[in-house]
Amino acid sequence: MDPVLGGGLLTLWGLLFRLLHIWVASRTELRRTEIQQQGLSERVRHLPPGSRLLERPGSVEIVTGAQPAEFRRG
């Protein structure tokens, strides 16, 4: 086999492998996020009336029960 052709095929194989790795990693991260959101939605659905959900980057705070007077709209 010609060394130039062999080097080209090896480079092409490396690029394809890298692209496959990036694609699989991104799909895995997307699926993980979907599962986390689904679990959060299920938990929120079962909260009692008057509960609040506060989402901040990196954290989620759930306050259960009736809302305090300062948070009520009226």
Rank of each mutant, 00 (worst) to 15 (best):
G58V: 02
P48K: 03
V63Q: 09
V63K: 04
G14P: 00
T64V: 11
A69G: 06
Q67G: 07
H21L: 12
V44R: 00
L10F: 12
R31I: 07
G8C: 04
V60M: 00
T33G: 01
L9Q: 04
L30P: 04
R72F: 00
L40K: 03
V44G: 08
R43M: 13
S41F: 09
I35P: 01
R27N: 09
E34C: 02
F17R: 15
E61K: 00
G50W: 03
L30Y: 15
A66F: 07
S41W: 02
L12Y: 14
S41V: 08
I62D: 10
E34Y: 06
T28A: 14
E70G: 02
G58L: 06
L5K: 02
W23F: 08
L5N: 07
L9F: 12
V4C: 04
L5G: 06
L30S: 09
T64R: 12
F17N: 13
A66N: 11
L47R: 01
G14I: 09
I22P: 03
G74L: 12
L20A: 13
A69E: 15
I22D: 13
L9Y: 07
Q67L: 14
Q36W: 00
E61W: 01
I22Y: 04
S41T: 13
E42H: 05
P49I: 08
P68S: 00
A69L: 14
R73V: 14
D2S: 12
D2A: 05
R32G: 02
Q67A: 14
E42Y: 01
I22V: 13
R56I: 00
R72T: 11
R43D: 10
E34L: 07
Q67E: 15
W13V: 12
S26V: 06
Q36G: 05
E55M: 02
R27M: 11
E34G: 00
R72Q: 15
L5Q: 10
R27Y: 03
L10I: 07
H21W: 08
Q67D: 11
F71M: 05
R73N: 14
G65L: 07
G58C: 05
G7D: 11
E55N: 01
G6K: 12
P68L: 01
R72H: 08
S26F: 07
L15H: 08
I22A: 10
P48G: 11
V4L: 14
M1F: 15
V24T: 14
D2H: 04
G7L: 09
G50Y: 04
H46N: 13
E61I: 09
T28C: 00
V24F: 05
E42S: 08
T11N: 01
L20P: 03
I35C: 02
P68T: 03
G65E: 06
Q38V: 08
R72V: 13
E55Y: 06
T11F: 04
P57V: 04
D2L: 01
D2F: 03
R72S: 10
G14W: 13
V60S: 08
E61T: 10
